[in-house]
Amino acid sequence: MLFTLGLIGLLTRRNLIFTLMSVEVMLNASGLAFVAGSYQWGRPDGQIMFLFILAMAAAEVSVGLALFLQFHRRHPALDSDTASEMRG
């Protein structure tokens, strides 16, 4: 359910910040599925996987936000809501 919402957000929004947030939501949803599986079978493996997903999300978000800053510098507009619209 959360994964679907994240996917919808990824497909419908064109703002880069919202795209990053949707990716975050999707990662969280898959992590939740891992933890639910770990709870189902009573093993810690799923939680290890969630730890890895968390680390990957941190790296991805930092690189993505740096890219977003870079993109925003290219557009010499003050309004971030219009400047962050992707064109093409």
């Binding site: 941190a58 690189v63 870079q70 510098r73």
Partner: peptide, 17 residues
């Protein structure tokens, strides 16, 4: 390793910005 790559990449992009 992935975190290290993310750190270096974010630093590089931020520096260029």
């Amino acid at each position: 390793l992935l975190l290290m790559a993310g750190l270096v990449g974010a630093y590089h992009l931020g520096r260029r910005a």
